[in-house]
Design a binder for these strands. Sequence first.
DNA 1: AACCATAGGTGTACGGTGTACACTTGCCAA
DNA 2: TTGGCAAGTGTACACCGTACACCTATGGTT
Lengths: 219, 219
Amino acid sequence: MTKSTTVTRKPLSRERVLEAAVALADEAGLEAFSMRALAQELGVVPMALYKHVANKDELLDGMVDGVFGEIELPSAEVDWRSAMRRRAISTREALGRHGWAIGMMESRRPGPANLRNHNAVMGCLRGAGFPFEVAIHAYSVQDAYIYGFALQERDTGFETPDSAGEVAQRRAATIGALEDYPHLAEIVTKLPESGYDNAVEFAWGLDLILDGLERLRHD
Amino acid sequence: MTKSTTVTRKPLSRERVLEAAVALADEAGLEAFSMRALAQELGVVPMALYKHVANKDELLDGMVDGVFGEIELPSAEVDWRSAMRRRAISTREALGRHGWAIGMMESRRPGPANLRNHNAVMGCLRGAGFPFEVAIHAYSVQDAYIYGFALQERDTGFETPDSAGEVAQRRAATIGALEDYPHLAEIVTKLPESGYDNAVEFAWGLDLILDGLERLRHD
DNA sequence: AACCATAGGTGTACGGTGTACACTTGCCAA
DNA sequence: TTGGCAAGTGTACACCGTACACCTATGGTT
């Protein structure tokens, strides 16, 4: 009975650590995410984590691959354009859930989910008939757009259509001499009443790019 | 004579601090960039910096605005497409010189160079005849692409056409079971001999986007 | 000429970080 | 019973940003 506390605590594992790490980063943000905070969350001493992950860097690798795992692979059942569109939207959604991952998706040692994802996307484009060099180009534009959009979305933070106005106002307040920047002033005044929506905005640019690629595929 | 050392040392100033900070971040990277290292670089005790900047965060704000200051504003002398093309290329170049800034361009309190830049870009689009909502879309796609491309460029690191092969090989080595990912294998083998060049790659996607926007402007 | 306020640089200290290294503990095979 | 091993602990170190009190030189006022 003296050891009942030991009995109640489920033992750690790499999976449990990764899961808790992602959850902590999601809700606390990357700068508040520390080994010590994660250990506390798991009811354990910091050094206990190092029995399941090599170090913080390798832990982050695993977390990022977890995010890749949440991204829908391009379906082979539909035309290439629909498949790419769906996986792009799925990627944006995953990055929305895990904002801390945005700058890290391609900067760390790739895990299995990452490889599967990249292989499937490239396979979709090649299967659609894009020659190798064009497929590389097509991949590059799409991913640059997706990651860049996610970055801006996180940083400018028009989270919902209704909050866009509020953000714009706050932004305007920090600027001060708005009369010197007439086109910024226009944004501040007109954007709130335009029903701005990040999902719509994302789809607009995505379709522009996909249209361009489709046109190019026909030559 | 006893104070000759004091005489030789030029006094600090916000400008000197910012300049040294950017230089240090450029060559040492963001994770090695610390107030203490910066102070040492300036031959001064860490706390001396705090007489010229409020804290590290505000210092980073200033550094980022410095990067904005290096970006060419869209010219009013040429057609909108050329103007936007030039400023996009100029932005990529500035981010190439200051890779540490890539994730921070839109996430910090905007400085004067930032405001001037955004105002000028929006002014260029509106002046070209894009209706307000379309101008917002056009701005959004372009910036997402530019920032996203810079991010991938930094992270995948095909620095020069000749080093692309080397990077691909190294990447391949870390993957291991390449036979499971046939389309990644194709990239590893074909990319090196395709003369891959980041500047060319960037221009390809940029032109695809600008073409799409131009077509849209005519309706 | 005497003063002293102020700006700029210093020294010390505190609470945070990642993690190396030596230790205990609990379990399971022999 | 023993002995080895995996999992968790405790202590310690070097680094980080920065609060706070202190010194010192300079330049304007009297």
